[in-house]
Write a protein that binds this DNA or RNA. Structure first.
Lengths: 128, 128
DNA sequence: TGCGAAGTACGAAGGGCTTCGTATATTGGC
DNA sequence: GCCAATATACGAAGCCCTTCGTACTTCGCA
C-alpha cells in the first residue's frame, strides 16, 4: 500500500508530530502546542494546515466552526520515508552506515545501545 | 571544532559526494560523474559549485584555467549533521528510535545486521 | 591570426516553503 | 441586537534551491 502523499516539509512534520501525539486537533490547539517551543503566528499554522489538507497529509472535519484536523499519514510510514531518503542521499543506501552514524551521536546513551543490542540479538535468534 | 558552514542542500550533497570520492575535481569531471546518474546541465553544476565556494562548502584553486574544487567539509561531520537533524526533527532526539527504523529498512541485509551486532557487542565489551 | 572548443561569470526564472497581513464570517454573551 | 473574540480564507512577499540561457574569456592549433 504505497503512499502517494508527498514527504512532509519541516513545518508540516512539526505539525504532524503534534497530531500524532495529541490526536485530532484544532488549529488553535496545534498552535498552542507549537508556541510552547517557538514563536509562530496563528495564521501561519493555519495556512500550513490548509496546505497539508490539500496535499492529503491531513484530513479535516468542518462540521464545527473550529475545524478539526486529523493526521492522514501514518507516523511509521513517514519516518520510513525520511530515513529512506536520507539513506539514499547520503549513505549510498547502506543502512549499516547510517546506523553506525546514529549510534555515534552523543545522544545515543549507553541505555539505548543496550536496548538496541538486545533487540538485534533477539531478532537474530528468531531468524535462525 | 564546530562547523559554521551550513548543511548542504541536496544538490550540494550530491556534488560533495563526488568530491569526497574522487578528491579535488574540476567542474567538468564532477559534471561527468553526475551525468552518469541523471541529466543535468554543465552550467547548473558550475553554478552550484560556485555557490558552494561562497558558502565555504568547497574551496577552489583558480591557478589553472579549469578551476579545481576541493571539499572543505568532512564527510563524517556532514553526515553527523544530517543524522542529527533528522533525529531532532523526526525522532525526538532518540537515536534508538532512528536506528530501529533504519534497521527495518528493506535494504538492511542480514549481513548488515550481523555486522552491526558485532560492532555493538564489541564496543559494549570495550566500554566495560 | 583567427576560429572553434571549453571554460567561467552572471542574471533571472520558476518552484516550493514559510510567514504574515488583511478581509471576512461566525459565535457567544451582555 | 451588537460587539468583541475567535474562526477561516486568501494573497502576496521573501527566501532558498535549482536550473539554464547568454555573454564573455582563454586556449590550442591549423
Amino acid at each position: 500500500m504505497p503512499d502517494k502523499t508527498p514527504v512532509p516539509s519541516n513545518a508540516e512534520l512539526e505539525i504532524l508530530r503534534v497530531l500524532w501525539k495529541d490526536g485530532p486537533s484544532t488549529v488553535r490547539s496545534v498552535h498552542d502546542a507549537l508556541s510552547r517551543e517557538r514563536n509562530v503566528g496563528y495564521t501561519t499554522v493555519l495556512k500550513i494546515m490548509q496546505v497539508m489538507a490539500e496535499k492529503r497529509l491531513v484530513t479535516r472535519d468542518e462540521s464545527e466552526r473550529s475545524h478539526v484536523y486529523s493526521p492522514a499519514v501514518e507516523e511509521k510510514s513517514v519516518k520510513r520515508r525520511l530515513v529512506s531518503d536520507l539513506l539514499d542521499k547520503a549513505f549510498d543506501g547502506s543502512a549499516a552506515q547510517l546506523v553506525m552514524q546514529a549510534l555515534s551521536d552523543k545522544r545515543a546513551s549507553a541505555e539505548d545501545l543496550k536496548q538496541i543490542r538486545k533487540l538485534l540479538n533477539e531478532s537474530a535468534r528468531k531468524e535462525q
